[in-house]
Design a protein around this nucleic acid. Structure first.
Lengths: 203, 203
DNA sequence: GTCTATAGGTAGATAGAC
DNA sequence: GTCTATCTACCTATAGAC
């Protein structure tokens, strides 16, 4: 356990509270309590609109984490199948370590009341999916993979990877498993998806 | 356009506000304004904790809509492949008419601060997935479909169906399409998923 | 840098006039 | 049934003591 500075403790606590409750339900009081510091210190470290400033910092970091991973899919030089494998590797690493990251992001984008969510999205250089779409169509034309709508293929892979983490509260209740078992299933899942997709795109 | 009673107007407005903003960010003021009625009437029709009571009614209806559809997958007498087709039919019908239903539910379950979310989930008789899981394994043993982990198969179908609607704000920006185009893509998608899954489970 | 006290604003609930 | 006015609670922000 490292020694955290007061500021770091606040940021850490804010990350917990915001990702669990969302911006609207988050309380700065709770952030202070969890950080083990006084309310007033939030103002000292994040002068003026401290709640908003803290949120911006945390949402931006989370958003970048999720989106920059997508670049892995798009930018490597490789076959479609191997690109998918690389993407699954990268994403499962991220998600297994931060299981409620996608829920947080999707939630804030869904309930987006705040202009700054828009700001952050524009700041991030979003990846360009076109080259990958072209590649998928080319490989299909060459008979390397089955002809398939490239947008839906990408969306399928992303869906199968991310959705279980978002629907986790519902899913766990449905099949009645605890947190540990859920994480075990997710660790297994990377291989399952790869296998599933390989068969689905086989010519 | 039917004539709605005052109470119906309130419920309708509440449905809009809650599903768009989520419970925490929703404002009873806005519900009253959208319903075109006075704030005080919320108390008249939903005495005591009107915000909470309204939310309960709306969340429960939404939750039932989503979950009872899952029963379609589980309870019919049919082949696995045809069950999947039926499920896709049922779900896409629902989602194309209520595109932000899953976002709303997942959001409230994720940020769940309220005990009543728990209540509602227990009230609904959740479907039992066991028979379907068994059937998938049987068909695999008989060589009708490829051997596959049944839980992940179900999760794959559900993921590909529901995820795009949840990630819609992000997805639309990523590929830069308007609402109309998005809905068109989703209408196409049902056939895409069915095709994808058929190839993936082919022996 | 840290804490206490309090101000200022907002949202939900309530009482009572019409 | 509908509306106005007000109350109360809560939350963020601020000022100032230590």
């Amino acid at each position: 356990m490292k020694e955290l500075s007061t500021e770091e403790k606040i940021v850490q606590a804010a990350k917990e509270v915001f990702t669990q409750k969302g911006y609207a339900a988050a309380r700065t009081d709770e952030i202070a309590v969890r950080a083990g510091v006084n309310k007033g210190l939030l103002q000292y470290y994040f002068k003026g609109k401290s709640k908003e400033k803290l949120f911006k910092a945390i949402f931006e970091e989370a958003f970048l984490k999720m989106v920059t991973r997508i670049n892995v899919i798009f930018e490597s030089e490789d076959t479609v199948e191997h690109k998918i494998e690389l993407a699954l590797d990268a994403y499962f690493d991220l998600l297994l370590e931060n299981p409620n990251l996608p829920g947080f992001i999707v939630n804030e984008l869904h309930t987006n009341t705040h202009a700054f969510v828009e700001e952050i999205m524009q700041k991030t250089n979003r990846p360009n999916p076109m080259p990958l779409l072209m590649q998928i169509m080319e490989e299909a034309a060459q008979g390397k993979i089955r002809p398939i709508n490239p947008v839906h293929l990408i969306l399928n892979v992303l869906s199968m990877t991310v959705f279980p983490f978002i629907a986790r509260p519902l899913f766990q209740r449905m099949i009645n498993v605890n947190d540990e078992t859920f994480m075990d299933m997710m660790r297994q899942r990377k291989a399952e998806i790869l296998d599933f997709v390989k068969h689905a795109i086989k010519p």
